[in-house]
């Protein structure tokens, strides 16, 4: 009977998770559409920040707390700042498009349909016999701490077993960061110089 009550509680929790997933996904879809719909780019950047916060909530519901952290810090924090800097350098209003982009719409809808179709062939969420659980994951779980001395399995995989992979990722992010800094830095310097030269011209 105690076992039955526990099972009931677990089932209730699963139902809550399901409803939360559905609600958050509806919110995410609504923010995505709104970000495209809004003409004011500043508003779009802020709606994208909301999108990231909602995604972070979704990751927590899915038990991927570390991904949620990254999403909240990078998506809602860094990306919003970068977007604002870019908007400050270009313009606040989106240009109106005269033609109707039917072909891109058809291509993206087709790709989305294919992706949804592909999810039908995926193993169930958290299934024990999924390929991801049967390949190297058991080895990492059994030997991870003994071999690397890292108590957290995810950290052990990222920092030790896939160390070179992570080094490559860091290189990519570093290069991207340098590129962004150079682009934004040179643009702001030019802008700062521009008003003084204009004044000299009028003088």
């Amino acid at each position: 009977m105690d076992e039955g009550a526990r099972q009931d509680a677990r089932q209730g929790r699963r139902a809550i998770d399901l409803y939360l997933n559905i609600i958050l996904l509806v919110f995410v879809a609504a923010t995505g559409i709104a970000a495209v719909w809004l003409r004011n780019l500043l508003a779009s950047a802020m709606v994208l920040g909301i999108y990231s916060l909602l995604m972070a909530g979704l990751w927590v519901v899915l038990d991927a707390v570390d991904v949620a952290f990254t999403e909240a810090a990078v998506g809602a924090g860094v990306t919003t700042v970068l977007m604002l800097l870019a908007i400050a350098l270009t313009g606040r209003e989106e240009k109106r498009v005269r033609t109707r982009p039917w072909l891109p719409l058809a291509v993206s809808l087709g790709a989305a349909g294919l992706l949804v179709y592909a999810t039908l062939g995926m193993p169930d969420f958290g299934a024990a016999d999924a390929p991801a659980q049967t390949h190297v994951a058991p080895y990492y779980l059994e030997r991870g701490e003994a071999e690397t001395g890292v108590p957290n399995v995810v950290t052990a995989v990222l920092a030790s077993y896939r160390g070179f992979d992570t080094l490559g990722e860091v290189t990519v992010i570093f290069t991207a960061g340098m590129g962004v800094l150079v682009l934004l830095g040179s643009a702001t310097r030019r802008r700062r110089k521009a008003p003084t030269s204009a004044k000299e011209d009028s003088a």
Partner: peptide, 10 residues
């Protein structure tokens, strides 16, 4: 703790 970063930036 990280929530306010975006707000302050904007």
């Amino acid at each position: 703790l990280i929530n306010f970063v975006a707000t302050i930036a904007v």
